Simulated scan of single mutants.
Amino acid sequence: MAPAVQYLVMIIKPHAVHKKLKIIQTLEQHGFRINGERCIDISFDEAWYICKDERGKMATDSASVENKMQSLMGTAIVLLVSHLGSAFEAVAHALGPEDPAEAVKVNPQSVCARFGETGPFNAVIASVNASAATREIQHFFPRFSDIFHGPISNIAEERIAIDAYFREKMLPTLLDGFYDLCVRKPAQPVPHLSAYLLNNNPNHPKIFKPGEYVFGMSSPSGLTREVEQETQNYAFCSQNRR
């Protein structure tokens, strides 16, 4: 029986992106095939997602986690790779030890030894096991997820539902609020928009009756006089635009 093809994710860290072609060539020499490639800007949240384990927990050594996250933040290359047979054993041999200094001694031809710098700046990281590979493929290459691992996640449907919810429940009121900001150009745009959203909530609109809202007095919300004056004209502005 022929060995099965296994898929996993590799990330070329920002400091090693300029060595991408040589790194890919080295991976191909170790039997890996590149099936997909993305260039992404890894933020703090993205780095946190990459560093956490399957239970959503971080390592107890906060200093090492912080350094690892720092090495990931920036413009990186995410690769979807495949290998015939034991992919994770092949990864360990191809990448070498995580510490570049140790990699130079133990496996001088490894990716970490040849392209790494120091500490967590070790050029490339990869999925550590099949479960991590599944999670990372779902995250970085969702359209390939069902092909490689079967319908184990409804991540695409969840994104569609989130997008539909945003467009139906939030976008119309937000667009009205942004239009109002552009027309009025208030000195305090954030409180202005906040007041607009609170007072124009389609589910719980606030209606000020004559004499109920007194200009110049401090309001329960703590808004400034300028914002209070502007909120009194929201309805008039919105009605005219519609």
Results as ranks from 00 to 15, higher is better:
Pro3Ala: 11
Ala94Phe: 07
Ser194Arg: 12
Asp61Thr: 08
Arg143Trp: 11
Ala76Ile: 03
Lys169Trp: 01
Glu212Gln: 13
Ser110Pro: 00
His149Asn: 10
Met69Thr: 13
Glu212Ser: 15
Ile77Ala: 08
Asp45Ser: 14
Ile207Trp: 06
Ile137Glu: 01
Glu28His: 03
Gly119Tyr: 03
Cys182Thr: 06
Phe88Ile: 03
Gly222Cys: 07
Val128Thr: 10
Ala16Thr: 03
Asn200Thr: 05
Glu158Pro: 00
Lys206Trp: 04
Phe208Ser: 14
Val17Leu: 07
Ala90Glu: 06
Ser131Thr: 15
Lys57Gly: 13
Ser64Cys: 06
Ser127Phe: 05
Pro14Ile: 02
Arg33Thr: 11
Phe115Gly: 03
Phe148Pro: 05
Pro172His: 02
Asn107Leu: 15
His30Trp: 09
Glu228Ala: 09
Leu95Ile: 15
Glu117Tyr: 06
Asn200Arg: 09
His192Gly: 03
Pro151Tyr: 03
Phe44Val: 04
Pro191Asp: 05
Glu212Phe: 02
Gln6Val: 01
Leu193Cys: 07
Ile160Gly: 01
Ile34His: 00
Tyr7Trp: 14
Lys209Ala: 14
Pro142Trp: 04
Asp45Asn: 13
Val78Leu: 03
Leu174Asn: 05
Ile162Cys: 10
Pro3Leu: 08
Gln239Asn: 08
Ile40Leu: 14
Ala59Ile: 01
Gly85Trp: 04
Glu168Met: 07
Ala235Glu: 10
Glu46Cys: 08
Arg242Gly: 15
Glu168Phe: 07
Lys209Ile: 07
Phe144Arg: 10
Leu198Asn: 12
Val104Asp: 02
Ile207Phe: 10
Val5Pro: 02
Ala59Asn: 10
Ile34Tyr: 01
Gly216Thr: 02
Leu198His: 12
Ile40Gln: 03
Pro220Ile: 03
Lys19Thr: 05
Ile160His: 13
Val214Met: 10
Arg55Glu: 13
Val65Gln: 11
Ile42Gln: 02
Asn154Arg: 15
Gly211Ala: 04
Gln109His: 14
Val17Ala: 12
Ala16Val: 02
Pro108Asn: 14
Phe44Ile: 00
Ser62His: 15
Ile50Pro: 03
Leu21Pro: 02
His149Phe: 15
Ala63Trp: 11
Phe140Glu: 02
Ile125His: 04
Asn122Ile: 08
Thr134Ser: 14
Pro108Val: 01
Leu72Gly: 11
Val65Asp: 11
Asn200Ala: 01
Ser194Trp: 09
